[in-house]
Amino acid sequence: MQVELEVNGNRYRVDAAAAEPLSALLRDRLQLTGTKVACGEGTCGSCTVLVDDRPVLSCLTLAAACDGASVRTVEAEGDLLDRLRRAFTEEDGFQCGFCTPGQLMSALALLERTPHPSPDEIVTAMSGNLCRCGAYEGIAVAVARAAEAPA
């Protein structure tokens, strides 16, 4: 079926199978391989992208359900995302980097909705993104730091 959607500001018209997850559409059809699939069943958060500003799991999101949607991935541009990238770098908020695209997307969604989150709000918002390397401290501090940084 035909799906029209916007990804990182670019419009696409894609012929997607009904069962095709958004993650496959992004990675295999649009070559946006920054979005990672680590579990494929909604448990790890690596595939988190923003659909109409909400952080969702692209492995469980049907591409067909994204007709007319605006999607943002780790490849997106933006000042807030850049601030997060700088903060993740400076606070060492990643190691292998495989979960990082999902971490960045969850953090972006949080700061867009809550520009100055409390430490508890950061923990809650980021708790659905598993990081096996254990970079959590850097992640939490980076999100707080990006929130404080001047726009």
């Binding site: 909604g42 448990t43 952080p55 809650t124 980021m126 708790s127």
Partner: peptide, 12 residues
């Protein structure tokens, strides 16, 4: 509602 599952699963 706030305790269920994970943040992304709650958004979906």
């Amino acid at each position: 509602a706030s305790a269920a599952a994970s943040p992304q699963l709650r958004e979906m």
